[in-house]
Design a binder for these strands. Sequence first.
DNA 1: GCGATTTGCCTAAATGCATTAGGCAGATTC
DNA 2: GAATCTGCCTAATGCATTTAGGCAAATCGC
Lengths: 189, 189
Amino acid sequence: MVRAGLTTERLIRAGAELADEVGFDQVTISALARRFGVKVASLYSHLKSSQDLKTGIALFALEELADRAADALAGRAGKDALAAFADAYRGYAREHPGRYDAARLRLDPETAAASAGVRHAQMTRAILRGYDIAEPDQTHAVRMLGGVFHGYVSLEMSGGFSHTPVDPEESWSWIVDSLDILLRNRTMP
Amino acid sequence: MVRAGLTTERLIRAGAELADEVGFDQVTISALARRFGVKVASLYSHLKSSQDLKTGIALFALEELADRAADALAGRAGKDALAAFADAYRGYAREHPGRYDAARLRLDPETAAASAGVRHAQMTRAILRGYDIAEPDQTHAVRMLGGVFHGYVSLEMSGGFSHTPVDPEESWSWIVDSLDILLRNRTMP
DNA sequence: GCGATTTGCCTAAATGCATTAGGCAGATTC
DNA sequence: GAATCTGCCTAATGCATTTAGGCAAATCGC
Protein backbone atom coordinates (compact mmCIF):
# COMPACT_ATOMS: atom_id res chain seq x y z
CA MET A 1 0.00 0.00 0.00
CA VAL A 2 1.07 3.57 -0.63
CA ARG A 3 2.30 5.47 2.39
CA ALA A 4 0.59 8.70 3.28
CA GLY A 5 3.74 10.48 4.43
CA LEU A 6 2.51 11.56 7.81
CA THR A 7 4.66 13.66 10.07
CA THR A 8 3.87 15.49 13.27
CA GLU A 9 4.45 18.74 11.44
CA ARG A 10 1.99 17.96 8.66
CA LEU A 11 -0.60 16.65 11.09
CA ILE A 12 -0.50 19.77 13.17
CA ARG A 13 -0.70 22.00 10.13
CA ALA A 14 -3.67 20.03 8.82
CA GLY A 15 -5.19 20.16 12.28
CA ALA A 16 -4.94 23.94 12.19
CA GLU A 17 -6.75 24.04 8.85
CA LEU A 18 -9.36 21.68 10.20
CA ALA A 19 -9.83 23.95 13.20
CA ASP A 20 -10.54 26.89 10.92
CA GLU A 21 -13.08 24.85 9.00
CA VAL A 22 -15.02 23.11 11.73
CA GLY A 23 -13.98 24.83 14.96
CA PHE A 24 -11.11 24.07 17.27
CA ASP A 25 -13.10 21.93 19.66
CA GLN A 26 -14.27 19.76 16.77
CA VAL A 27 -10.69 18.88 15.94
CA THR A 28 -10.26 15.21 16.64
CA ILE A 29 -7.79 12.49 15.86
CA SER A 30 -10.49 10.68 13.95
CA ALA A 31 -11.35 13.64 11.76
CA LEU A 32 -7.68 14.20 11.06
CA ALA A 33 -7.20 10.56 10.09
CA ARG A 34 -10.16 10.78 7.73
CA ARG A 35 -8.66 13.84 6.14
CA PHE A 36 -5.48 11.92 5.40
CA GLY A 37 -7.35 8.82 4.28
CA VAL A 38 -5.64 6.84 6.98
CA LYS A 39 -6.67 4.74 9.96
CA VAL A 40 -6.91 6.40 13.33
CA ALA A 41 -4.24 4.30 15.00
CA SER A 42 -1.70 5.45 12.45
CA LEU A 43 -1.63 8.94 13.91
CA TYR A 44 -0.40 7.65 17.23
CA SER A 45 3.05 7.15 15.78
CA HIS A 46 3.26 10.92 15.44
CA LEU A 47 1.05 12.22 18.22
CA LYS A 48 1.01 11.14 21.82
CA SER A 49 -2.66 11.90 22.33
CA SER A 50 -5.56 14.03 21.33
CA GLN A 51 -4.48 16.58 23.90
CA ASP A 52 -1.03 16.55 22.37
CA LEU A 53 -2.53 17.41 18.99
CA LYS A 54 -4.49 20.31 20.43
CA THR A 55 -1.45 21.63 22.23
CA GLY A 56 0.54 21.34 19.02
CA ILE A 57 -2.03 23.36 17.12
CA ALA A 58 -2.08 25.95 19.89
CA LEU A 59 1.70 26.36 19.77
CA PHE A 60 1.62 26.53 16.00
CA ALA A 61 -1.04 29.24 16.08
CA LEU A 62 0.85 31.21 18.71
CA GLU A 63 3.97 31.16 16.52
CA GLU A 64 2.10 32.13 13.43
CA LEU A 65 0.32 34.96 15.19
CA ALA A 66 3.56 36.19 16.72
CA ASP A 67 5.17 36.16 13.28
CA ARG A 68 2.39 38.24 11.87
CA ALA A 69 2.51 40.67 14.72
CA ALA A 70 6.26 41.00 14.32
CA ASP A 71 5.83 41.74 10.62
CA ALA A 72 3.19 44.31 11.39
CA LEU A 73 5.41 45.98 13.94
CA ALA A 74 8.48 46.21 11.74
CA GLY A 75 9.49 49.79 11.15
CA ARG A 76 6.68 51.29 13.17
CA ALA A 77 6.52 53.07 16.49
CA GLY A 78 4.06 54.88 18.69
CA LYS A 79 0.44 54.85 17.71
CA ASP A 80 1.30 53.35 14.34
CA ALA A 81 2.80 50.35 16.04
CA LEU A 82 -0.09 50.05 18.44
CA ALA A 83 -2.65 50.07 15.65
CA ALA A 84 -0.68 47.66 13.48
CA PHE A 85 -0.27 45.25 16.34
CA ALA A 86 -3.93 45.41 17.20
CA ASP A 87 -4.95 44.89 13.59
CA ALA A 88 -2.62 41.93 13.23
CA TYR A 89 -4.29 40.33 16.18
CA ARG A 90 -7.81 40.98 15.03
CA GLY A 91 -7.03 40.12 11.43
CA TYR A 92 -5.62 36.77 12.40
CA ALA A 93 -8.70 35.94 14.42
CA ARG A 94 -10.98 36.83 11.56
CA GLU A 95 -8.94 34.95 9.01
CA HIS A 96 -8.25 31.92 11.17
CA PRO A 97 -10.92 31.65 13.86
CA GLY A 98 -10.09 28.06 14.70
CA ARG A 99 -6.41 28.77 15.10
CA TYR A 100 -7.18 31.82 17.14
CA ASP A 101 -9.26 29.73 19.50
CA ALA A 102 -6.41 27.26 19.60
CA ALA A 103 -4.01 30.02 20.60
CA ARG A 104 -6.24 30.63 23.63
CA LEU A 105 -5.95 27.04 24.85
CA ARG A 106 -4.87 26.87 28.44
CA LEU A 107 -1.32 25.53 28.46
CA ASP A 108 0.52 24.18 31.43
CA PRO A 109 3.11 26.65 32.74
CA GLU A 110 6.23 25.00 31.32
CA THR A 111 4.70 24.67 27.87
CA ALA A 112 3.48 28.25 28.00
CA ALA A 113 6.90 29.51 29.06
CA ALA A 114 8.47 27.80 26.05
CA SER A 115 5.81 29.05 23.65
CA ALA A 116 5.61 32.07 21.42
CA GLY A 117 3.34 33.61 24.06
CA VAL A 118 6.53 35.06 25.47
CA ARG A 119 7.20 36.89 22.21
CA HIS A 120 3.74 38.39 22.35
CA ALA A 121 4.48 39.96 25.69
CA GLN A 122 7.86 41.18 24.46
CA MET A 123 6.29 42.84 21.46
CA THR A 124 3.73 44.55 23.61
CA ARG A 125 6.55 45.90 25.76
CA ALA A 126 8.29 47.08 22.61
CA ILE A 127 5.24 49.09 21.66
CA LEU A 128 5.14 50.67 25.08
CA ARG A 129 8.68 51.93 24.66
CA GLY A 130 7.15 54.53 22.41
CA TYR A 131 5.09 55.78 25.33
CA ASP A 132 7.62 56.26 28.07
CA ILE A 133 5.93 54.24 30.78
CA ALA A 134 8.06 52.91 33.60
CA GLU A 135 7.59 49.80 35.68
CA PRO A 136 5.35 48.64 37.24
CA ASP A 137 2.96 50.66 35.10
CA GLN A 138 4.47 49.09 32.04
CA THR A 139 3.40 45.65 33.18
CA HIS A 140 -0.05 46.96 34.01
CA ALA A 141 -0.26 48.38 30.51
CA VAL A 142 0.94 45.14 28.93
CA ARG A 143 -1.80 43.33 30.73
CA MET A 144 -4.41 45.84 29.77
CA LEU A 145 -3.48 45.76 26.11
CA GLY A 146 -3.41 41.98 26.09
CA GLY A 147 -6.78 42.00 27.78
CA VAL A 148 -8.49 44.49 25.47
CA PHE A 149 -7.22 42.97 22.28
CA HIS A 150 -8.05 39.46 23.26
CA GLY A 151 -11.33 40.36 24.89
CA TYR A 152 -12.60 42.50 22.07
CA VAL A 153 -11.72 39.97 19.41
CA SER A 154 -13.20 37.19 21.45
CA LEU A 155 -16.48 39.02 21.98
CA GLU A 156 -16.65 40.01 18.34
CA MET A 157 -16.02 36.43 17.23
CA SER A 158 -18.75 35.09 19.44
CA GLY A 159 -21.22 37.43 17.85
CA GLY A 160 -21.63 39.62 20.91
CA PHE A 161 -21.77 42.78 18.82
CA SER A 162 -24.27 41.78 16.22
CA HIS A 163 -27.34 43.09 18.01
CA THR A 164 -26.20 46.70 17.75
CA PRO A 165 -26.01 48.52 14.44
CA VAL A 166 -22.68 50.18 15.19
CA ASP A 167 -19.88 49.00 12.93
CA PRO A 168 -17.31 46.93 14.85
CA GLU A 169 -14.66 48.41 12.63
CA GLU A 170 -15.36 51.86 14.01
CA SER A 171 -15.42 50.59 17.56
CA TRP A 172 -12.05 49.05 16.97
CA SER A 173 -10.55 52.31 15.72
CA TRP A 174 -12.12 54.19 18.57
CA ILE A 175 -10.63 51.77 21.07
CA VAL A 176 -7.17 51.92 19.55
CA ASP A 177 -7.38 55.74 19.55
CA SER A 178 -8.48 55.65 23.16
CA LEU A 179 -5.64 53.41 24.21
CA ASP A 180 -3.19 55.67 22.46
CA ILE A 181 -4.55 58.73 24.25
CA LEU A 182 -4.51 56.87 27.52
CA LEU A 183 -0.96 55.66 27.19
CA ARG A 184 0.28 59.08 26.21
CA ASN A 185 -1.24 60.71 29.26
CA ARG A 186 -1.16 57.99 31.86
CA THR A 187 2.11 59.07 33.45
CA MET A 188 0.54 62.29 34.78
CA PRO A 189 -2.76 61.64 36.48
CA MET B 1 -36.49 1.85 43.89
CA VAL B 2 -36.22 5.35 45.31
CA ARG B 3 -36.47 8.17 42.82
CA ALA B 4 -33.65 10.63 42.63
CA GLY B 5 -35.84 13.65 42.00
CA LEU B 6 -34.11 14.91 38.91
CA THR B 7 -35.22 18.10 37.26
CA THR B 8 -33.63 20.14 34.52
CA GLU B 9 -33.07 22.89 37.06
CA ARG B 10 -31.22 20.66 39.51
CA LEU B 11 -29.18 19.07 36.76
CA ILE B 12 -28.00 22.39 35.44
CA ARG B 13 -27.18 23.64 38.89
CA ALA B 14 -25.20 20.49 39.63
CA GLY B 15 -23.56 20.82 36.24
CA ALA B 16 -22.42 24.31 37.19
CA GLU B 17 -20.87 22.97 40.40
CA LEU B 18 -19.23 20.21 38.46
CA ALA B 19 -17.81 22.74 36.03
CA ASP B 20 -16.19 24.62 38.90
CA GLU B 21 -14.68 21.42 40.22
CA VAL B 22 -13.38 19.75 37.09
CA GLY B 23 -13.56 22.41 34.38
CA PHE B 24 -16.37 23.30 32.06
CA ASP B 25 -15.17 21.15 29.19
CA GLN B 26 -15.03 18.13 31.47
CA VAL B 27 -18.71 18.45 32.22
CA THR B 28 -20.41 15.46 30.72
CA ILE B 29 -23.76 13.75 30.94
CA SER B 30 -22.02 10.69 32.31
CA ALA B 31 -20.24 12.55 35.08
CA LEU B 32 -23.48 14.25 36.01
CA ALA B 33 -25.32 10.93 36.15
CA ARG B 34 -22.61 9.50 38.40
CA ARG B 35 -22.98 12.48 40.68
CA PHE B 36 -26.67 11.76 41.08
CA GLY B 37 -26.15 8.02 41.43
CA VAL B 38 -28.31 7.46 38.42
CA LYS B 39 -27.97 5.85 35.00
CA VAL B 40 -26.95 8.00 32.09
CA ALA B 41 -30.09 7.45 30.04
CA SER B 42 -32.18 8.87 32.86
CA LEU B 43 -30.89 12.35 32.22
CA TYR B 44 -32.30 12.37 28.74
CA SER B 45 -35.77 12.86 30.15
CA HIS B 46 -34.62 16.25 31.34
CA LEU B 47 -31.95 17.25 28.85
CA LYS B 48 -32.11 17.06 25.11
CA SER B 49 -28.41 16.50 24.67
CA SER B 50 -24.98 17.14 26.04
CA GLN B 51 -24.91 20.41 24.14
CA ASP B 52 -28.21 21.31 25.75
CA LEU B 53 -26.67 20.79 29.17
CA LYS B 54 -23.73 23.01 28.35
CA THR B 55 -25.98 25.71 27.01
CA GLY B 56 -28.11 25.46 30.13
CA ILE B 57 -25.08 25.91 32.36
CA ALA B 58 -23.96 28.86 30.25
CA LEU B 59 -27.33 30.58 30.59
CA PHE B 60 -27.38 29.87 34.29
CA ALA B 61 -23.93 31.37 34.73
CA LEU B 62 -24.85 34.44 32.70
CA GLU B 63 -27.88 35.02 34.93
CA GLU B 64 -25.93 34.52 38.10
CA LEU B 65 -23.17 36.83 36.96
CA ALA B 66 -25.68 39.46 35.88
CA ASP B 67 -27.35 39.24 39.28
CA ARG B 68 -24.06 39.79 41.03
CA ALA B 69 -23.16 42.66 38.81
CA ALA B 70 -26.56 44.23 39.43
CA ASP B 71 -26.06 43.90 43.19
CA ALA B 72 -22.63 45.44 42.91
CA LEU B 73 -23.99 48.33 40.90
CA ALA B 74 -26.87 49.14 43.21
CA GLY B 75 -26.53 52.63 44.65
CA ARG B 76 -23.28 53.41 42.92
CA ALA B 77 -22.33 55.72 40.11
CA GLY B 78 -19.29 56.97 38.27
CA LYS B 79 -15.98 55.39 39.08
CA ASP B 80 -17.48 53.60 42.05
CA ALA B 81 -19.88 51.82 39.78
CA LEU B 82 -17.19 51.05 37.25
CA ALA B 83 -14.93 49.51 39.87
CA ALA B 84 -17.73 47.55 41.50
CA PHE B 85 -18.84 46.16 38.18
CA ALA B 86 -15.33 45.18 37.23
CA ASP B 87 -14.74 43.52 40.58
CA ALA B 88 -18.00 41.60 40.36
CA TYR B 89 -16.89 40.22 37.05
CA ARG B 90 -13.43 39.27 38.17
CA GLY B 91 -14.63 37.97 41.51
CA TYR B 92 -17.11 35.68 39.87
CA ALA B 93 -14.45 34.26 37.58
CA ARG B 94 -12.14 33.59 40.50
CA GLU B 95 -14.83 32.07 42.63
CA HIS B 96 -16.48 30.06 39.87
CA PRO B 97 -13.97 29.45 37.10
CA GLY B 98 -16.01 26.69 35.51
CA ARG B 99 -19.15 28.76 35.41
CA TYR B 100 -17.23 31.71 34.07
CA ASP B 101 -15.94 29.58 31.22
CA ALA B 102 -19.48 28.41 30.67
CA ALA B 103 -20.66 32.00 30.41
CA ARG B 104 -18.22 32.41 27.54
CA LEU B 105 -19.70 29.56 25.54
CA ARG B 106 -20.61 30.63 22.03
CA LEU B 107 -24.40 30.68 21.84
CA ASP B 108 -26.44 30.80 18.71
CA PRO B 109 -27.88 34.27 18.10
CA GLU B 110 -31.46 33.59 19.21
CA THR B 111 -30.33 31.96 22.44
CA ALA B 112 -27.91 34.78 23.08
CA ALA B 113 -30.56 37.39 22.47
CA ALA B 114 -32.80 35.75 25.07
CA SER B 115 -29.99 35.37 27.59
CA ALA B 116 -28.83 37.54 30.45
CA GLY B 117 -26.05 38.70 28.16
CA VAL B 118 -28.43 41.48 27.23
CA ARG B 119 -28.55 42.64 30.85
CA HIS B 120 -24.76 42.77 30.92
CA ALA B 121 -24.76 45.22 28.05
CA GLN B 122 -27.52 47.27 29.68
CA MET B 123 -25.60 47.53 32.92
CA THR B 124 -22.49 48.64 31.11
CA ARG B 125 -24.54 51.37 29.45
CA ALA B 126 -25.90 52.34 32.84
CA ILE B 127 -22.36 52.83 34.11
CA LEU B 128 -21.55 55.01 31.14
CA ARG B 129 -24.42 57.33 31.99
CA GLY B 130 -22.13 58.59 34.73
CA TYR B 131 -19.64 59.66 32.09
CA ASP B 132 -21.71 61.64 29.64
CA ILE B 133 -20.75 59.83 26.47
CA ALA B 134 -23.09 60.04 23.51
CA GLU B 135 -23.67 57.52 20.75
CA PRO B 136 -21.94 56.05 18.87
CA ASP B 137 -19.08 56.50 21.32
CA GLN B 138 -21.20 54.93 24.00
CA THR B 139 -21.39 51.69 22.05
CA HIS B 140 -17.67 51.81 21.40
CA ALA B 141 -17.12 52.23 25.11
CA VAL B 142 -19.47 49.38 25.96
CA ARG B 143 -17.50 47.15 23.68
CA MET B 144 -14.20 48.28 25.07
CA LEU B 145 -15.26 47.70 28.66
CA GLY B 146 -16.67 44.29 27.81
CA GLY B 147 -13.46 43.47 26.04
CA VAL B 148 -11.09 44.59 28.77
CA PHE B 149 -12.94 42.93 31.59
CA HIS B 150 -13.40 39.67 29.80
CA GLY B 151 -9.95 39.69 28.27
CA TYR B 152 -8.11 40.53 31.45
CA VAL B 153 -9.96 37.96 33.50
CA SER B 154 -9.50 35.36 30.83
CA LEU B 155 -5.77 35.95 30.58
CA GLU B 156 -5.41 35.95 34.33
CA MET B 157 -7.34 32.69 34.63
CA SER B 158 -5.18 30.99 32.06
CA GLY B 159 -2.09 31.86 34.03
CA GLY B 160 -0.81 34.39 31.53
CA PHE B 161 0.39 36.71 34.27
CA SER B 162 2.25 34.31 36.46
CA HIS B 163 5.66 34.78 34.87
CA THR B 164 5.88 38.41 36.02
CA PRO B 165 6.24 39.39 39.66
CA VAL B 166 3.75 42.24 39.46
CA ASP B 167 0.63 41.67 41.52
CA PRO B 168 -2.42 41.16 39.27
CA GLU B 169 -4.46 42.97 41.90
CA GLU B 170 -2.50 46.14 41.31
CA SER B 171 -2.74 45.78 37.57
CA TRP B 172 -6.47 45.46 37.94
CA SER B 173 -6.75 48.67 39.97
CA TRP B 174 -4.50 50.46 37.54
CA ILE B 175 -6.65 49.38 34.64
CA VAL B 176 -9.88 50.44 36.31
CA ASP B 177 -8.31 53.79 37.17
CA SER B 178 -7.14 54.15 33.60
CA LEU B 179 -10.54 53.38 32.18
CA ASP B 180 -12.10 55.92 34.50
CA ILE B 181 -9.66 58.59 33.41
CA LEU B 182 -10.20 57.68 29.80
CA LEU B 183 -13.96 57.79 29.98
CA ARG B 184 -13.94 61.12 31.79
CA ASN B 185 -11.79 62.72 29.11
CA ARG B 186 -12.75 60.89 25.98
CA THR B 187 -15.37 63.40 24.89
CA MET B 188 -12.71 66.01 24.16
CA PRO B 189 -9.86 64.61 22.10
C1' DG C 1 -59.18 3.65 48.47
C1' DC C 2 -58.46 1.73 43.97
C1' DG C 3 -57.90 1.34 38.97
C1' DA C 4 -55.91 3.95 35.16
C1' DT C 5 -52.61 6.90 33.53
C1' DT C 6 -48.61 9.45 33.68
C1' DT C 7 -43.90 9.99 34.96
C1' DG C 8 -39.24 8.69 36.29
C1' DC C 9 -35.68 5.90 36.04
C1' DC C 10 -34.25 1.57 34.21
C1' DT C 11 -31.95 -2.07 30.70
C1' DA C 12 -30.27 -2.75 26.19
C1' DA C 13 -28.04 -1.57 22.12
C1' DA C 14 -25.84 1.33 18.43
C1' DT C 15 -22.44 4.78 17.33
C1' DG C 16 -18.24 7.37 17.66
C1' DC C 17 -13.78 8.92 19.62
C1' DA C 18 -9.37 7.75 22.17
C1' DT C 19 -5.99 4.66 23.12
C1' DT C 20 -2.93 0.48 23.22
C1' DA C 21 -0.86 -3.92 21.46
C1' DG C 22 0.86 -6.38 18.05
C1' DG C 23 1.52 -7.52 12.84
C1' DC C 24 2.98 -7.04 8.06
C1' DA C 25 4.90 -4.87 4.15
C1' DG C 26 7.61 -1.14 2.02
C1' DA C 27 11.70 1.56 2.65
C1' DT C 28 16.42 1.80 4.18
C1' DT C 29 20.93 0.05 5.21
C1' DC C 30 24.68 -2.83 4.61
C1' DG D 1 19.77 -9.47 -1.54
C1' DA D 2 19.37 -10.05 3.53
C1' DA D 3 18.43 -7.66 7.68
C1' DT D 4 16.43 -4.02 9.94
C1' DC D 5 13.56 -0.31 10.60
C1' DT D 6 9.53 2.45 9.87
C1' DG D 7 4.87 3.40 8.70
C1' DC D 8 0.53 2.15 8.52
C1' DC D 9 -2.49 -1.65 9.45
C1' DT D 10 -6.06 -4.85 12.21
C1' DA D 11 -7.99 -5.85 16.55
C1' DA D 12 -9.67 -4.94 20.97
C1' DT D 13 -10.94 -2.07 25.07
C1' DG D 14 -12.99 1.77 27.49
C1' DC D 15 -15.76 5.65 27.86
C1' DA D 16 -19.37 9.21 26.27
C1' DT D 17 -23.59 10.05 23.58
C1' DT D 18 -27.94 8.92 22.11
C1' DT D 19 -32.32 6.26 21.17
C1' DA D 20 -35.95 2.67 22.05
C1' DG D 21 -38.63 0.37 24.87
C1' DG D 22 -39.96 -1.53 29.78
C1' DC D 23 -41.41 -1.56 34.63
C1' DA D 24 -42.62 0.46 38.90
C1' DA D 25 -43.80 4.49 41.62
C1' DA D 26 -46.53 8.55 41.86
C1' DT D 27 -50.66 10.81 40.75
C1' DC D 28 -55.36 11.43 39.18
C1' DG D 29 -60.35 10.37 38.54
C1' DC D 30 -63.84 8.33 40.74
